[in-house]
């Protein structure tokens, strides 16, 4: 069959392209322009790479970056296995399935700053259930003076808020596995572990990569929850990248250094997301190849 190549569909992308250029490309160009100048009111001085040098060697920002990676990888290490476990335990059909599904995804419906406020009250020693309870058990719990308490609480808060997303993705992934696989496993008298390891987990790979990607990017940009809960303290022990950036750009009006910082932040997210993108694409390619060969 002779195929006529017609690329006119590309013109349909034009409106989107215009929109993206105004919402992303032009602001990004402006940020690049800002990053090499010292801007005071209406006057701008060219400073070259000075802001980049300063930002890359700023111990506060290096600390925030390390904390950011530590935070993102900690919550991924907890939320992914926990989400899979919850998805496996959820009822498969009937009214119980709907009821449990609604209960599980409720935290996802709460806005970020509300999550922060809820946990702020929840962890207070005088009126909060968790704070009061832990204090009553004899442990002096305080997220405003003890950095470890603050960290554990923020991680707990994020796990509470976002594990449902992983659980939801895995649940839909599990429902998409044809019954025939389980029947074959029963004929082979496969153990529950073998079913999980060789049927369920491989079938979940695609949704898990999407889940991990979403959770990584999201947690890497986390702002409202720790800001409301701890304000970045005690000291700067829970100050993450976006909060450092905001206090620099809006608090101190240091437009040049914060522009340089934004570009570095952007490059980190871009690199990690690209690696995930490549991983997803290759996984799908492998799948197509094996299906084509079968």
């Amino acid at each position: 069959m002779n195929k006529v190549e017609n690329n006119k569909a590309w013109f349909l992308v034009l409106p989107m392209l215009v929109l993206v250029s105004f919402s992303a490309v032009i602001p990004l160009m402006t940020v690049v322009n800002y990053s090499i100048q010292d801007i005071l009111g209406n006057s701008a001085f060219f400073v070259g790479t000075e802001w980049f040098e300063k930002t890359l060697n700023d111990p506060d920002l290096q600390g925030a970056l390390l904390r950011q990676f530590a935070f993102s990888f900690t919550i991924l290490a907890i939320e992914v296995p926990l989400g899979i476990a919850i998805a496996l335990l959820m009822p498969k059909k009937g009214w119980q399935a709907s009821a449990v599904l609604i209960l599980v995804i409720l935290p996802l419906l709460v806005p970020w700053n509300v999550v922060g406020s809820m946990w702020q009250i929840f962890t207070r020693g005088d009126i909060g259930l968790m704070g009061y309870g832990i204090n009553a058990l004899g442990y002096d719990y305080s997220i405003t003076s003890n950095a470890t308490d603050a960290w554990v609480t923020i991680i707990l808060m994020d796990v509470w808020h976002w594990t449902p997303l992983i659980a939801l993705l895995c649940y839909s992934g599990l429902r998409a596995i044809p019954e025939a696989y389980y029947q074959a496993a029963r004929i082979d008298r496969a153990s529950n572990w073998a079913v999980f390891r060789y049927i369920q987990l491989p079938k979940l790979t695609n949704v898990l990569v999407i889940g991990v990607l979403l959770r990584f990017m999201h947690s890497f940009m986390i702002y409202a929850e720790p800001f409301v809960l701890t304000g970045g303290g005690p000291g700067s022990s829970t100050t993450f990248l976006s909060q450092s950036l905001t206090s620099m750009a809006i608090g101190q009006q240091d437009l040049g250094p914060s522009a340089a910082f934004s570009i570095i932040y952007f490059l980190i997210i871009l690199a990690v997301s690209y690696v995930f993108y490549i991983a997803i694409m290759n996984m799908q390619k492998d799948k197509v190849n094996t299906q084509g060969g079968a």
Binding site: T49, E53, I264, A271, Y274
Partner: peptide
């Protein structure tokens, strides 16, 4: 091309931030 641009950005950042070599 994209990988090259991205890694070039990192090369530049590395040189600016952690060495005194000319950009």
């Amino acid at each position: 091309f994209f990988i090259g641009l991205l890694t070039s950005a990192y090369i530049h950042l590395g040189v600016i931030g952690f060495t005194t070599i000319s950009i």
